[in-house]
């Protein structure tokens, strides 16, 4: 029997979730809480196997609560069930020790599946978010695409224009030109203007 606790400030959500869980005989809702305070109080008496935790709640929010609960009761596996679908939030919750992250518009079957797999010790993330996370991981932090403005500046540099001259020509500030220049060096992976020009010619940019 999987014991499940639910924390959400919407009574309707609580009800809905209880009904969904109740329809599965191997699962049992042991506690439903409207806020963090009552949640923490309830957990002190009885720890469930799984906690479905909303993030946006009055008082302490889900992120904070996840951290506290994970530290205090490491055996309780937390699944974030929220309306927030931004990746940093997902990452944050996962970092706090959550085992799963789902949006509230998740299909009930999907949620039940997730509860089972988390109970088995796996991690489960809403499919849409998982795709995004993966892409995010594979996207390097380094900018690689050279903008056409940067190509323009490269050409001006090749034409022996100084930074102030470029600034004049493009009606931008000297600082911005310096920004551009540093960025181009970074993007092409070179250290100085000579390398810049060589690389730019190699890549057919100028």
């Amino acid at each position: 029997m999987i014991q499940i606790a639910i924390a959400d400030d919407h009574a309707l959500i609580l009800n809905g979730l209880q009904k969904i869980i109740a329809s599965h005989p191997d699962m049992q809702v042991t506690g439903a809480y409207m806020n963090g305070e009552s949640l923490l109080g309830g957990l002190a008496l009885q720890q469930p196997d799984i906690l479905l935790l909303d993030i946006q709640m009055p008082g302490q929010n889900g992120i904070e609560l996840a951290g506290i609960i994970h530290k205090k009761y490491p055996s309780v596996k937390i699944i974030a069930l929220t309306n927030i679908e931004v990746l940093p939030q997902v990452k944050k919750m996962m970092r706090q020790g959550c085992s799963g992250y789902f949006l509230k518009d998740v299909a009930p079957d999907e949620l039940i599946c997730a509860i089972r797999s988390v109970y088995e010790g796996e991690e489960a993330v809403h499919e849409r978010l998982r795709k995004e996370l993966t892409r995010h991981f594979f996207t390097s932090d380094h900018p690689t695409v050279i903008t056409r403005r940067e190509v323009e500046i490269l050409r001006l540099i090749a034409d022996e224009h100084t930074n102030p001259e470029i600034a004049d020509k493009l009606c931008i500030s000297l600082h911005t030109v310096e920004n551009h220049r540093n960025r181009i060096l970074q993007k092409l992976g070179v250290k100085n203007t000579a390398g810049l020009i060589r690389k730019a010619i190699e890549q057919g940019l100028i």
């Binding site: 919407h10 309707l12 959500i13 809905g16 329809s23 946006q56 009930p108």
Partner: peptide, 22 residues
């Protein structure tokens, strides 16, 4: 919108899901 109506919609949807299952 997010917390109020969004919550209500989510709850409603959940209830209808229950109805569907039942």
């Amino acid at each position: 919108l997010h917390d109020g109506i969004g919550g209500l919609l989510a709850a409603a949807k959940m209830n209808f899901e229950m109805v569907k299952a039942t």
